[in-house]
């Protein structure tokens, strides 16, 4: 068995070192790092400026590091929501077709390895790079936060941040897999990159507008419009991710939809415990993981059925 498993990790290793050495990755990391540090500084200056208002009852102060902004630079969660897909696409859009075009695919696949090692190692390699990057960024923000405000995160906050980082990896993995799908479908790397970016742009910029127009056209009463908008919006991975991170890192948010007067009546205005926050976003988590796996499944099937010849 190890005869089959060992080459797989060798291939994963090669993928990781390829990504880390590539210019597109270095440029993206530089970009993400710069914006992260920028947003962290704005957050820290806000917190310092309002130091007098902070009291010991103000729990979840630490999470503000990830969510607060003064409007000049977006907070960390928005940043990852925006640049994460770009990172995923950049790592995924040419994994298969570039090897095919360079003539390395047929050479590697004629080695004694199962065919799916090729696409699996591409996925695992890129995913490893993404996870390392996301977690180091997250810990960087935490570390700088602890140093500059002097308040450590509570265990609950720490867990929330870890889960947030994990789900960010899943979210970026979705875009990675979308990139892999296009890289198996299109011969030209540029075509596949443009297709990925088109989908990304569609979901970031146009989808919400489209949903608004559609909902307003179908219904007249505000409640139905709201419900339909929400249902349709949640088909977008961007929206799922932004809802999910907001709930996770802002424990004071108690519901995702509209609440009736009866539901609010008598409720104690406190924060949700972690378990309850997770319960609220459980469908989002499964949805995001499912979307990611479906994309990979499609690319896997495409790849396995494709002819090897260049």
């Amino acid at each position: 068995m190890t005869d089959i498993v060992r080459p797989f990790w060798i291939m994963v290793q090669k993928e990781i070192s390829d990504h880390v050495r590539s210019w597109k990755f270095i440029i993206l990391v530089a970009l993400i790092l710069l914006t992260t540090i920028g947003s962290l500084f704005t957050v820290l200056s806000i917190i310092r400026g309002n130091a007098a208002n902070i009291n010991s009852d103000n729990t979840f102060l630490f999470l503000n590091l990830f969510t607060t902004s003064d409007g000049s630079l977006p907070p960390f969660i928005t940043l990852i929501g925006f640049l994460g897909p770009l990172l995923g696409i950049a790592l995924g859009f040419d994994v298969i077709n570039s090897e095919r075009n360079r003539g390395t695919l047929s050479r590697v696949i004629s080695q004694p390895i199962p065919r799916d090692h090729f696409i699996n190692s591409k996925f695992v390699g890129a995913l490893a790079v993404i996870c390392v990057l996301v977690f180091s960024l997250g810990f960087l923000v935490m570390g700088l936060g602890i140093i500059s405000i002097g308040i450590p995160p509570t265990p609950d906050e720490f867990l929330r941040i870890i889960i947030f980082l994990l789900l960010s990896c899943v979210y970026i993995a979705f875009w990675l897999n979308l990139g892999i799908v296009f890289s198996t479908t299109f011969r030209q790397s540029s075509t596949s990159a443009l297709s990925c970016l088109a989908i990304w742009l569609f979901f970031t910029a146009f989808y919400s507008m489209l949903v608004q127009i559609l909902a307003n056209a179908v219904y007249r009463d505000p409640y139905s419009i709201k419900v339909l908008t929400l249902i349709l919006s949640r088909l977008s991975p961007n929206y799922l991710y932004s809802e999910l991170t907001t709930i996770l890192l802002t424990p004071s948010i108690r519901s995702l939809g509209a609440l009736s007067i009866e539901q609010i009546y008598g409720a104690i205005p406190s924060s949700l415990p972690l378990g309850q926050s997770l319960l609220l976003i459980w469908p989002h988590i499964t949805g995001l993981i499912a979307a990611s796996i479906i994309c990979f499944g499609i690319s896997y099937i495409f790849f396995m059925r494709q002819e090897i010849r260049a």
């Binding site: 360079r102 047929s106 050479r107 004629s110």
Partner: peptide, 13 residues
């Protein structure tokens, strides 16, 4: 079995 494809390519970097 060793196979040399017609358009053989290597990792250029």
């Amino acid at each position: 079995t060793g196979y040399l494809p017609d358009q053989v390519g290597f990792y250029e970097n």
